[in-house]
Simulated assay, not measured.
Amino acid sequence: MVRLQELQKKIKLTGDRAMLDAKANGTYIVYKKSDGQMVREYPNGEIIPMFYTGTPHE
């Protein structure tokens, strides 16, 4: 159980760091929500869903 808690803490810290980098560089982060939806999140809190475009590299 302790390892799971440590892993969850590291995942959260990684996400927090990514958002700090996005803010510093004027960009956004991309992640998958628990329901499977891919989203872009901007440092101002705006969340925009991403939709499948059918590109062959995905």
Rank of each mutant, 00 (worst) to 15 (best):
M1G: 14
R3Q: 12
Q5Y: 07
E6K: 15
L7I: 15
L7E: 13
Q8E: 14
I11L: 12
I11K: 13
I11V: 10
K12A: 15
K12P: 01
K12E: 14
L13C: 01
T14P: 00
T14A: 14
G15L: 15
G15F: 14
D16H: 04
R17G: 01
R17E: 12
A18M: 15
A18S: 12
M19K: 09
L20R: 15
L20T: 12
L20G: 01
D21E: 15
D21G: 05
A22H: 03
A22L: 02
K23V: 04
K23M: 12
A24Y: 05
N25I: 00
G26D: 14
T27E: 11
T27V: 11
T27Q: 05
Y28Q: 01
I29W: 07
V30F: 02
V30D: 03
Y31D: 04
K33T: 08
G36P: 07
Q37L: 10
Q37I: 09
M38A: 04
E41A: 05
Y42S: 04
Y42A: 04
P43S: 06
P43N: 08
N44P: 00
N44G: 03
N44Q: 10
G45D: 04
G45T: 01
I48F: 08
I48G: 01
P49M: 06
M50Y: 00
M50F: 03
F51W: 07
F51E: 12
F51M: 10
F51A: 07
Y52D: 09
Y52G: 01
G54W: 05
G54R: 08
G54I: 09
P56H: 08
P56N: 04
P56V: 06
H57P: 00
H57I: 07
E58Q: 09
